[in-house]
Simulated scan of single mutants.
Amino acid sequence: MALILNNYRQTDNNDFHNIFVKAEILLLFEIIPGKKEKIECQGGVYVLESEKAWSTQNVIRKWVDLMLPLVLRGSQRGLLIWDSASTHRAKDMKNFLAERRVDQVMIPAGMTAYLQTLDIAINKPFKDYLRLEINDYIENRMSRNKNNNFVKPNLQEVVSWVRNAWGKVTDSCVAKALKAGYLDKTSPFEASYIAKHDRLGPMILKELESNEI
């Protein structure tokens, strides 16, 4: 799970410039039931050892409380852009985010390829880099037990894969993703993926032009 931030800063001449930030990544790792779940930084990667290694409401809440203090300052509000998964739409989640001055935008079904910046330009290169790390481990370092079965990699090994793969996702890649998802106000609408949509692209462009007039 990763958060891509797009903040704006005002210069002396009142122009606004984007500040693109590649935030820290959170690795979910399955643990034995009963162990207390908490986020710890291990080898430069935030790790949450959880009984269920997927994005539950509990995981999202821990992640939000970890990341937002690093982003929000003073009276600033946060914005989460994500899909309409049941954990995101739940009333408890909406109340939780509202208490932390976080607004949310739900990406409509079928529009992920046009509006979800992570899927558009971040997830694939990250997964490709991660696959290279895993293949290198399998070919060069994976060991077997006395029964000749492969030994499960430990947490430190997995952390190194994630750290190395995420480190190869550059800030320029993040900037391109925000433009593709039409989250960069300095980039024209025509540069976004939604502009290429046969039906919605022309409709949105017409609305934008109408508002400008």
Score class of each variant (00 low, 15 high):
residue 76 Q to V: 04
residue 103 D to R: 01
residue 102 V to N: 08
residue 76 Q to K: 00
residue 94 K to Q: 15
residue 96 F to D: 07
residue 80 L to S: 07
residue 69 P to Q: 02
residue 106 M to F: 15
residue 110 G to K: 00
residue 72 L to P: 12
residue 76 Q to N: 12
residue 73 R to V: 14
residue 97 L to M: 11
residue 77 R to E: 15
residue 69 P to C: 04
residue 94 K to F: 05
residue 81 I to K: 02
residue 71 V to I: 13
residue 78 G to Q: 03
residue 110 G to L: 02
residue 99 E to T: 06
residue 79 L to K: 03
residue 113 A to Q: 13
residue 80 L to E: 00
residue 78 G to H: 07
residue 107 I to Q: 12
residue 80 L to C: 08
residue 80 L to T: 03
residue 83 D to M: 01
residue 106 M to N: 12
residue 82 W to K: 03
residue 93 M to W: 11
residue 76 Q to E: 15
residue 82 W to C: 09
residue 100 R to T: 07
residue 88 H to I: 02
residue 104 Q to C: 09
residue 83 D to R: 00
residue 89 R to F: 02
residue 105 V to A: 07
residue 108 P to N: 06
residue 111 M to N: 01
residue 79 L to P: 11
residue 103 D to E: 13
residue 75 S to V: 04
residue 92 D to F: 04
residue 87 T to Q: 12
residue 105 V to I: 14
residue 103 D to I: 05
residue 106 M to G: 01
residue 75 S to H: 10
residue 113 A to H: 15
residue 101 R to S: 14
residue 111 M to T: 03
residue 83 D to N: 07
residue 99 E to S: 08
residue 79 L to M: 10
residue 114 Y to S: 10
residue 82 W to P: 04
residue 80 L to R: 01
residue 108 P to L: 03
residue 87 T to N: 15
residue 105 V to M: 12
residue 70 L to M: 13
residue 109 A to V: 09
residue 92 D to P: 05
residue 99 E to I: 02
residue 69 P to E: 09
residue 107 I to C: 05
residue 70 L to F: 11
residue 73 R to G: 00
residue 104 Q to I: 09
residue 95 N to I: 09
residue 86 S to L: 11
residue 83 D to W: 06
residue 97 L to E: 10
residue 98 A to M: 11
residue 81 I to E: 08
residue 68 L to M: 15
residue 94 K to E: 14
residue 80 L to Q: 01
residue 72 L to G: 08
residue 71 V to L: 13
residue 89 R to E: 15
residue 80 L to F: 13
residue 98 A to E: 15
residue 79 L to T: 09
residue 104 Q to S: 11
residue 114 Y to V: 05
residue 106 M to I: 15
residue 101 R to M: 04
residue 104 Q to W: 03
residue 110 G to Q: 05
residue 94 K to N: 13
residue 70 L to H: 15
residue 108 P to C: 00
residue 96 F to C: 06
residue 104 Q to Y: 08
residue 70 L to V: 06
residue 77 R to C: 11
residue 73 R to Q: 14
residue 100 R to F: 02
residue 67 M to H: 12
residue 111 M to I: 02
residue 80 L to A: 07
residue 102 V to S: 05
residue 113 A to Y: 07
residue 99 E to H: 09
residue 109 A to D: 05
residue 87 T to H: 15
residue 94 K to I: 08
residue 105 V to F: 14
residue 75 S to M: 09
residue 69 P to S: 04
residue 91 K to V: 14
residue 104 Q to E: 13
residue 89 R to M: 14
residue 95 N to K: 14
residue 103 D to T: 01
residue 114 Y to G: 04
residue 105 V to D: 02
residue 112 T to K: 01
residue 78 G to S: 05
residue 107 I to K: 04
residue 92 D to G: 10
residue 112 T to M: 05
residue 68 L to P: 00
residue 74 G to R: 11
residue 100 R to Q: 10
residue 104 Q to K: 06
residue 70 L to C: 14
residue 91 K to M: 08
residue 71 V to E: 11
residue 78 G to M: 04
residue 102 V to T: 14
residue 71 V to Q: 11
residue 102 V to Q: 07
residue 107 I to T: 09
residue 95 N to V: 10
residue 67 M to C: 11
residue 102 V to P: 13
residue 101 R to F: 06
residue 83 D to S: 06
